[in-house]
Design a protein around this nucleic acid. Structure first.
Lengths: 260, 260
DNA sequence: ATCGGACATTGATCTAGCGCAATGAAGAGC
DNA sequence: GCTCTTCATTGCGCTAGATCAATGTCCGAT
């Protein structure tokens, strides 16, 4: 797989979708300096504090960004899904470490070469700027989810976010006789850290939602969403439900969580 | 006060600090298209969903970004302090409404004129890109604070964040015989929404921290931080304390919360 | 000065979620 | 096959925090 293949194949996703619209010669230039890396699960590709000289695009799999607290605990602060970009440009050290949550493939670009292309191409530069704006919105959406006072509500919000982000991502979102199935890319313990709770509480919250008929738990890492409306209601944001249920999503960045 | 005055006077802050280093003619150009607006407390200057055709720089006061939930509740998702930028460029509608938490002054730029300058000036463009990167980091720091399972911990983290962000901002951070005083720019109810708790719990958490000698509550909106280390410990991030206690902060974006 | 409203605090009760411990379930290595 | 390890689940006592209600405090308007 080359980078050009990926941009064409992954054209459903935010960043890479936009990349596909770049002039062909620019994509060729990107193709020349990029390198495909296979990551095994658990592999760490960036450490906080030390300068990371690569910019990466996720092609397959899920990565998680996490902060290592002084006491050694890992604190998940975000997920990267295919189409996402990570790494620093024109800038200092990484704030977080990045670890492959599943087996994954990423395209990496030497930072300086990438920056040179950025400087030379206003179109690419503009794309990165828009991408970062989208990322800010996503992170603020996270804040809204996290500030739900109840664990059930936060979990419901998390599931809704997975829905919007995993839409069209191969293998992450399926449908079982009309119902939406979501694969949960991280463990209960990590989810607990992410949602400000304990693993036991997360487990209980999952089963509480199941008891209320909102979800079915096929496996710990695979759930069926039976009632998006109820989940959105639980999360405190009916509008999220509408957005997900709307089949023909318009281009990203319309409603709160409508961005892919 | 002109925009040029502001960039010189506010040179301690992130975005405007960098602006001050722009070529003089570019700042003149910005000066020409900008307009100073006085905001009274509670004034709303941006509504979610509708396109906002202004880009703004905060010169004085505190603004809060908030999401209006379907049930009418307001959900604070971030604060803007002097030196911060808001608004959209090359892009769709605002995701959140912005409201003046205190009396405030902002410089506003017509969006299209600003975008034209952005396109014409790689330096300004680069500055905005870096600014957004910083903003992403800040929002992720928020996530870490919000995912603290205890209200006390989240409140402590919030106070620490105010410390780092208010550093050098006139009137927001003072010192009383060696102790750091912080002014709390939002009400208990808003703080409760922001931190995923109830106003009563926030009030109790404040007084619990006071009982433990970590803070003194002068007025509901003014507290003295007696022990940064203990607060940082409570927040779960000893490193935050070190960063604040270090008098000569290096340039922004070094440690977790060292960015101003 | 007095009234009214917004906001902060305090008290009392009740429940959600923590914390610890024990028990399953699934995969890796031998 | 087996054991060992890791992860998810379940039970139970206990605390933090939600919830409801009352009181206090400040400020602006009359």
């Amino acid at each position: 797989m080359t980078f050009l293949d990926a941009t064409n194949r992954l054209c459903a996703f935010s960043m890479i979708a936009d990349l596909a619209e770049l002039p062909h010669d620019l994509r060729e230039a990107l193709n020349k300096i990029c390198q495909l890396r296979h990551l095994r699960q658990g592999q760490v590709i960036a450490h906080p504090g030390e300068p990371h000289d690569l910019v990466g695009f996720v092609a397959e799999g899920i990565l998680r960004m996490q902060k290592t607290l002084p006491d050694g605990r890992q604190h998940v602060v975000g997920l990267l899904v295919p189409g996402d970009v990570y790494g620093r440009v024109f800038d200092g050290a990484m704030q977080f470490s990045i670890e492959a949550a599943t087996e994954a493939k990423v395209f990496v670009f030497p930072r300086h070469a990438f920056e040179a292309l950025l400087s030379a191409s206003p179109a690419l530069d503009r794309l990165m700027l828009l991408h970062f704006l989208t990322e800010i919105d996503r992170t603020r959406d996270w804040m809204v989810i996290l500030s739900n006072p109840k664990v059930r509500g936060r979990l419901a919000g998390f599931l809704m976010m997975l829905c919007t982000r995993f839409r069209n991502i191969e293998g992450m979102l399926g449908s079982m006789n009309g119902m939406l199935t979501v694969s949960i890319p991280i463990s209960r313990a990590d989810l607990a850290h992410l949602l400000g709770a304990r693993a036991e509480s997360i487990s209980r919250a999952f089963h509480a939602l199941a008891d209320d008929g909102m979800i079915d738990i096929i496996r710990p890492d695979l759930v069926v969403l039976r009632s998006i409306e109820d989940l959105a209601d639980e999360a405190g944001e009916p509008e999220m439900g509408e957005a997900i249920l709307t089949e023909d999503l318009p281009s990203h960045r319309i409603g709160s969580l409508r961005r892919l």
